[in-house]
Amino acid sequence: MLKIKDLNVHYGGIHALRGINIDVPKNKIVTLIGANGAGKSTTLRTIMGLVRGSKGKINYNDTDITNKETKEIVEMGAVLVPEGRRVFANLTVEENLTLGAYIRKDKSEIKKDMELVYKLFPRLAERKWQKAGTMSGGEQQMLAVGRALMTKPKLLMMDEPSLGLAPLIVKDIFEIIKEIHRQGVTILLIEQNAKAALEIADYGYVLETGSIVLEGEGNELLNNDEVQKAYLGETK
């Protein structure tokens, strides 16, 4: 579904991505793990057209999207839940969700999808009229995911959805990711929480200072010595 070939990204003098190749097959969960500053967010931001690569190609459903506008990419069914939630703090929960459906015209379908989001996150339903900025971190994360779902995505990308959340809520978030996946959405997940991510992932990539140093099936990586040492804090 998503194929990244030899992608390079520079920020001024910083070479943030050094020719990475990533393949996200349809209906799979793929995860990208790596230390702080490895280039994980940069990868997702480049896919969405917020950052431009200096070299390389991004293909989405066999269309070259390397130079497409963010809006066009969203319209093609790819969406990003950005790092740090980024809900619209001055808007209500319901308005945030409505804006998630900004590109859509199918009014009755939008309504149905909103009900689905409220079913997935009953917390949000209770807080329809609350300003997003006054909600707790966990609630904001739910809203960020719900807002992304309102675009009716085929590919859902999430940048550290569990960041700063209590372990119990992290578990919920991962359950919900699985649920969304069951409904036929392909998922590309970035996580600091490498163990949880690899457990639910079909395939994983390990990114280190802008290069992919390791890749493999979820369980495979989970049992890999280097990964365990570097990301799971376990020694054998």
Partner: peptide
């Protein structure tokens, strides 16, 4: 930026 990510022009 978050607005752009929702497909807002």
């Amino acid at each position: 930026e978050a607005a752009r990510l929702m497909g807002i022009d």
